[in-house]
Design a protein around this nucleic acid. Sequence first.
DNA 1: AGTCCTAGATGCATACTGCATCTAGGAGAA
DNA 2: TTCTCCTAGATGCAGTATGCATCTAGGACT
Lengths: 102, 102
Amino acid sequence: MAFLKNWDAYGYQLTQRLSEAGLPEFDSGTVYRTLRQLEHTGLVSSSWDTSESGPARRMYRLTAAGDLFLTRWMEALQHYQKVIEKAVSGTEVNPGRARRRR
Amino acid sequence: MAFLKNWDAYGYQLTQRLSEAGLPEFDSGTVYRTLRQLEHTGLVSSSWDTSESGPARRMYRLTAAGDLFLTRWMEALQHYQKVIEKAVSGTEVNPGRARRRR
DNA sequence: AGTCCTAGATGCATACTGCATCTAGGAGAA
DNA sequence: TTCTCCTAGATGCAGTATGCATCTAGGACT
């Protein structure tokens, strides 16, 4: 979804952008299915584009809901990363063991 | 794995730490299965702990390989986050369209 | 004896993924 | 013209992963 934020795109283009961006090769099958599902959920919308030559393309565009979702998701991602870093850099060793009795 | 970095732990404890840390509730079934799999891969090692009362617990500990893997994984995570942020903040609108002919 | 908590494991149905394959439009070469 | 290749999207299938519920079992407290 991040790759749709400012650039509307169609699926094939997305798979290329993703791999060019060095992301772990997203399978095109997964990309297409994910786009359809996002559309079903209302986070992206699509329309057929027959303006140029070649086979018809399905243009995808983030909806307002998708934009909001992406923002929230990225906030969550940052939050998780902080949590993970805190966990890794935590200097406590085996904190709070042996408080079993009640 | 981040939650094993400096604290050895057993599965039940991990599920608690994860939920206390505000991470999207990891299912205990998934946690146990994942630990077993990590052990199978050699990223963590385990031993039975019967020192305290209650049912026996399986203590998990990061191996050297696991430590290395975690480091690499966190580097990758940061990289992906940068890529995503770059994608989102990109101001280009529909770059390089219409270069289809060859 | 009965209930509750800790600790781990597993069965099952569903969901997701990678891989291969299929349709189809069109460009360029032979 | 015919053959081949590239773009574009979709789908079947097998393997894997997940969430949920359930099961065993030790021990504490009432």
